[in-house]
Amino acid sequence: MDIEFIRENIPFYVEAAFLTARLALIGILLSAGIGFVCCIIRELRIPVLRQITAVYIELSRNTPLLVQLFFLYFGLPRIGIVLSSEACAIIGLAFLGGSYMAEAFRSGLEAVPQIQTEAGMSLGMKRMQIFFHIILPQAVATSVPVFCANVIFLIKETSVFSAVALTDLVFVAKDLIGISYRTDEALLMLVAAYLLLLLPVSVLCSFIERRVRYAEFGNTGIVSGN
């Protein structure tokens, strides 16, 4: 194990890690936004947009990110739309992540019992008011575990960004292996980089999940049919 080699090349990995983190952050935020919008559209049952959203979710969940990126980066320029590597990466990640986030928020919404809506209605509240003040806060709390899982998933997905010529961690590792044949060192640093990136996130997510579970939302009343 050539320590000197490792020391020399750490800066490249660090730079790549920052790039990955930055793109992942933007992609995740956009995904959350898209997912939220999709959910609202579905809840409000807006006519045309609802079908478009459904189609989008199916397309995005059933195709790999790599193929989406290739299409964006190599395919679109052929019809005149040229996007930078970074733009492609962010759009691809957001496109993919949006549907996963939409699922997370949907499961959160479905976990709120219908009778909570009825309780709000019986107090004279309007649908909008009920949604924003009663349903949404509860749905967010339930969505947290799936949301966290999605964050980890999306950060892992960024590993394909090298395919669209971005100097991310995988690119750096592959490059080093090709140039110097120091496979072990290059791979070790690659693994270490992802560990450093993802372990804190994973721990943070577990912590958040435990806090939300402790808050223990939910009614304890037993409802008998009548």
């Binding site: 009825e118 107090l123 509240m125 009663i134 009614n219 009343g221």
Partner: peptide, 27 residues
């Protein structure tokens, strides 16, 4: 017309006071 449900249906993410005060202020 007020209604009280068998399963109470208080809003779990709000305090008791907030639960009571929500509708008169908002509605």
């Amino acid at each position: 017309i007020g209604m009280v449900f068998q399963s109470y249906e208080l809003f779990p993410h709000m305090t008791i006071l907030e639960n009571v005060v929500l509708a008169p202020c908002m509605v």
